[in-house]
Amino acid sequence: MERLLKILSNIKPGIDFTKEKDLVERRILTSFDILRLVSEINNEFDIEITPLHILPENFNSAESIYALIQKLEDED
């Protein structure tokens, strides 16, 4: 989780990602941010997030993003 929070605060400084639950709906993360986020997560965690996983419910909070990472790590 720590690694993910570091990536998130690099992309969007000043947001409390431990509390925010509507990152996509409130447009805190735009499609460009998600693109960068996916690329950095893929590199950092050695997984492959594909367009199939780009759903608001997967990116609305740090927890949901982390849950997606864990799911993809398990699939590998």
């Binding site: 499609s31 693109l35 996916v38 690329s39 367009p51 780009i54």
Partner: peptide
């Protein structure tokens, strides 16, 4: 998303990162 996250694009992305 399919274009920007295609395999070719992800390779470019990795190099630029």
């Amino acid at each position: 998303y399919p274009v920007s996250m295609s395999q070719g694009m992800m390779k470019i992305n990795k190099k630029l990162a």
